[in-house]
Simulated scan of single mutants.
Amino acid sequence: MNDKPYLIPAQMAVYQEEIKKSLFITQLSHTASIDEAKAFIDTVRQQHNEAGHNCWGFVAGRPENSMLWGFSDDREPSGTAGKPILSQLSGSGVGEICAVVTRYSGGVKLGTGGLVKAYGGGVQQALKLLQTIEKKITTKLRLQLDYAFMPIAQALMTQFSVLEVSANYGESIDLILEIERRQLEDFSLAVINKSGAKAMITPLEDNKNN
């Protein structure tokens, strides 16, 4: 299980160019799953339903997870559109991203090499316009502690950038926290050491964001 953060799109990016009378429109979007990628592809198809081709590729998870990759030539000659699109995406280091390249043909044939260059090049240029943010891989845990330990626990939560999800104040304090998964072990050890092993930590089910 990879706990390392990775980049995802912060917003859409669009690039268009005309090549030998054909108009190529490249749209990049954040899609966190295969279903989201397919929904984005369908949306672009509806926007450009008069276009001859809406070719696409996606990386629907971590950048290196090829099990979540997909592509389509959408009636262009095999290997001239989908693969060049996916090649640019998979080499970008950005995850959870989908690209749809729409082509309005101008009647002039580009040839196999021209199509590969046009589709791959459009995505390459769109990636230069793309703004990204870092996605941290988090998990949740339960922290049960006495009131006397709360100030120290709050200091540790600040130190490890822990987010308080919920809190229940009864005879003792019962917190649900969210933390970067790679920080979990160090935070747990710090809590146990600082509390003299009186605070209780219980890891909860990991978020499905890896």
Rank of each mutant, 00 (worst) to 15 (best):
Q154W: 00
F149L: 11
P5M: 11
G93T: 04
T202D: 04
G93N: 06
Q131P: 00
Q47T: 02
R142D: 00
S166L: 05
S166M: 06
G82H: 13
R103P: 11
A39T: 12
H30L: 10
R142S: 04
D74I: 01
Q27R: 15
I173P: 02
T26V: 11
I192E: 15
A32M: 09
E134N: 11
P9N: 04
F40A: 01
D42W: 00
S33G: 10
D42S: 10
M150Q: 12
G114I: 14
I25P: 06
G82T: 08
T102R: 04
V100S: 07
N209M: 13
Q131H: 08
L86S: 09
V108K: 12
N49F: 11
N49Y: 12
H48Y: 15
Q46F: 00
G70S: 07
E205Q: 14
K136P: 00
F24E: 03
F40E: 09
M67E: 10
M150T: 06
L189K: 13
I41K: 05
L89G: 04
V94I: 15
K117E: 07
N193H: 09
A167D: 04
L175M: 13
Q124T: 09
T43N: 06
Q125P: 06
S33Q: 11
A99P: 05
K117S: 13
P9M: 08
K109C: 01
L129R: 08
E205T: 12
N54P: 03
